[in-house]
């Protein structure tokens, strides 16, 4: 254990945890916006997979990473429009529609991959880590926090941005109102449908970015690349009690525990026979943290409830 607490190792763990947290954070921030407006989107994982394939395909064919991010964003937006049409415009049940989106994304991304690409070749280049001038030279802290890629910086910058959006803008107020009491919001002249529509699109675009971050960090696509990551992101939204800051804490917790487990395995502290048991750690710790720390925050009152004017 003592070896674990050397500064050098800690720096590695923190940096690795932040990288692992990036896709969780992006997806859970987006889902936070959606849920605050009263929409539970269980299709996050499917959107991430489709967007990840889009980003992979664009990067593979053109080598242009900006284009890849754009394609992922567009894919997220497009699937978001479909989901919003179904759940908001057609008032369909959110849970089952989301699972439909998930299954579609899971199968269709794999199908496109097999038909259009086939062989899992890595993309020509990945997102490089950018050292932030000045800050990255701070001993230890610089290596842990300020040598990441643009997607990671972007994800963490999105946290205050989403906070601002939800707390300080008219749109954010509408989102919260619509999520708490759509009838009242409607009677005050807020368009429930339009607000939820936009909230879903923001959420699915963020999920698209999360998919892109997986591909641009890992450099590869394969069937079920996300491995249930989108569902974990949904769990993190609950963990974070529908707050952007909470989503960040949840994502970091999950990522850091994963990174610590990896580090302890590499050092041999966790014996190989117990490696599966150790892989449970992030999930167990997330539940325990919620049991002991919080868990009393009320969900948006209108969550999962379709709204139709009567």
């Amino acid at each position: 254990m003592s070896q674990f607490f050397t500064l050098g190792v800690m720096v590695t763990v923190v940096a690795s945890g932040i990288r692992l947290a990036t896709p969780y954070l992006l997806a859970s921030l987006g889902e936070t916006i959606g849920q605050r407006s009263g929409v539970l989107n269980l299709g996050v994982d499917g959107i991430m997979l489709l967007a990840a394939f889009g980003a992979y395909y664009a990067a593979l064919k053109t080598g242009n990473l900006w284009l890849a991010v754009l394609v992922a964003l567009g894919t997220g937006l497009f699937v978001g429009i479909i989901y919003a049409l179904i759940t908001v415009s057609l008032h369909a049940a959110q849970g089952i529609s989301g699972i439909g989106i998930f299954l579609f994304g899971l199968g269709f991304s794999d199908l496109l991959f097999q038909v259009w690409v086939g062989t899992p070749l890595p993309i020509p280049r990945k997102l490089p880590a950018l050292a932030i001038p000045g800050l990255s030279d701070i001993p230890y802290v610089g290596d842990a926090l300020f040598r990441h890629n643009l997607m990671t910086y972007g994800a963490f910058l999105l946290v205050p941005a989403v906070m601002f959006l939800l707390q300080r803008t008219t749109f954010g107020m509408n989102v919260r109102a619509v999520g708490e009491n759509p009838q009242a919001a409607d009677s005050l002249g807020v368009s429930v449908e339009r607000t939820r529509f936009v909230a879903i699109l923001l959420g699915s675009s963020a999920a698209g970015l999360a998919g892109a971050s997986l591909v641009l960090q890992g450099g590869i696509f394969q069937a079920n690349l996300t491995n249930g990551l989108g569902f974990i992101a949904i769990a993190i939204v609950y963990f974070g009690a529908w707050r952007p800051l909470g989503a960040m804490v949840g994502s970091l917790l999950y990522g850091l525990v994963q990174a610590s487990v990896v580090q302890l395995k590499v050092q041999g502290t966790i014996p190989r026979g117990a490696s599966d048991l150790a892989a449970m750690a992030p999930a167990i710790i997330t539940i325990l943290a919620l049991v002991f720390l919080a868990g009393r925050v009320k969900a948006p009152a209108a969550l999962t409830r379709p709204f139709a004017r009567h």
Binding site: T12, N224, Q258, A259, K265, V266, R272, D276
Partner: peptide, 25 residues
């Protein structure tokens, strides 16, 4: 030799971080 089983056939990101941890050690 340090051998790490990540616990997943599919988790590309975790495999990458395991490699990073190996290098750091």
């Amino acid at each position: 030799v340090s051998v790490v089983y990540t616990g997943s056939f599919g988790d590309v990101a975790l495999a990458a971080e395991t490699a990073t941890a190996h290098l750091a050690n």
